[in-house]
Lab assay of single mutants.
Amino acid sequence: MQIFVKTLTGKTITLEVEPSDTIENVKAKIQDKEGIPPDQQRLIFAGKQLEDGRTLSDYNIQKDSTLHLVLR
């Protein structure tokens, strides 16, 4: 499925993911596309910070959802 990741600069990254993918996995995909190390990434969805060990389906993230990427 496709999800979107919006950065603070207003750029939107499109990712191909599975509901069973972990947040860690998603961060690795963002690193592949953007070169941002996962340890600098914070992903936010519906006002919640997403934890590495959980999956997209744990957070009820569905296709065409938009996550927000904050760098630390």
Rank of each mutant, 00 (worst) to 15 (best):
I44A: 15
K27D: 00
Q49G: 13
K48E: 14
Y59S: 03
T66R: 07
E18I: 12
K33D: 07
N60Y: 08
V26I: 12
A28L: 02
V17G: 05
V26S: 01
F45H: 09
E18L: 11
D39V: 06
S57K: 12
E34D: 04
L50K: 00
Q40V: 08
L67G: 01
V17I: 07
L15H: 01
L8S: 14
K48M: 15
T7P: 02
D32L: 06
N60K: 14
G35W: 04
K29D: 13
I44L: 15
T66H: 15
T9N: 15
E18P: 12
S57W: 05
E51H: 05
E51F: 02
E51Q: 02
E18A: 15
I3H: 00
G47Q: 03
M1V: 06
K63L: 12
V70Q: 15
V70Y: 09
K11G: 10
I3K: 00
A28F: 09
I44N: 08
S57T: 06
V70S: 15
G35E: 15
V5T: 02
E24T: 09
K63R: 06
L8V: 09
N25H: 06
D39E: 08
K11D: 13
A28V: 07
T22V: 09
P19V: 09
I30G: 01
I44P: 00
Q31S: 07
Q2V: 11
K11Y: 03
L43H: 01
P19N: 06
L15W: 01
Q40P: 05
Q31K: 10
V17W: 04
Q62S: 04
E16D: 05
E16L: 09
D21I: 09
L69H: 02
F45R: 02
G10L: 11
Q41P: 14
L67Q: 01
K63G: 12
K48D: 14
K11R: 09
D64V: 02
E24H: 06
F4R: 02
D64W: 12
D64R: 03
I13S: 05
I61V: 11
N60H: 05
T66A: 15
I61Q: 01
R42L: 07
N60E: 11
V17A: 10
I23H: 02
D64S: 01
K33H: 11
L50W: 01
I44H: 14
T7F: 12
D58A: 07
Q31P: 07
T55W: 08
D58R: 02
K33Y: 07
K27M: 13
G35Q: 11
E16N: 11
T55K: 13
P19G: 14
D64Q: 02
D52Y: 04
D64F: 13
I44V: 13
M1D: 05
E16S: 05
I23R: 01
A28G: 05
S20K: 13
Q62R: 08
V26N: 00
Y59F: 05
T22F: 07
F45M: 07
P19E: 09
T12Y: 12
D64G: 03
S57Y: 04
I13M: 15
T66S: 12
E34F: 04
F4G: 08
D58W: 06
T14H: 07
L8Q: 13
Q62N: 06
D64Y: 07
D21G: 11
A46H: 02
V26D: 00
T55H: 07
G10S: 11
H68E: 15
T22P: 04
L69Q: 13
G35V: 03
D58I: 03
T7Y: 09
L15Q: 01
K29I: 04
I3T: 02
I3F: 02
I61K: 00
N25I: 06
P37G: 08
P37K: 03
T12L: 15
Q2F: 13
F4D: 10
V26W: 00
K63W: 10
T7R: 13
L56Y: 01
V5E: 00
D39Y: 05
L71P: 03
Q2L: 10
G53T: 10
N60R: 06
I36D: 06
R42A: 14
I44Q: 06
R72I: 13
L69V: 06
N25G: 03
V17S: 08
D32Q: 09
T55Q: 09
T12V: 05
Q49S: 09
T9G: 08
T14M: 03
P19I: 13
K27Y: 13
F45N: 08
L15N: 00
S65D: 13
G53N: 10
E16K: 06
R54E: 12
I30V: 12
Y59H: 04
L56Q: 00
K29L: 11
F45I: 03
K6W: 11
E16H: 12
K11P: 12
R54M: 12
P19S: 07
T9V: 05
R72P: 15
M1L: 05
N25M: 04
T7Q: 05
L71Y: 15
S65V: 14
E18H: 12
Q49W: 05
T66I: 12
V70D: 13
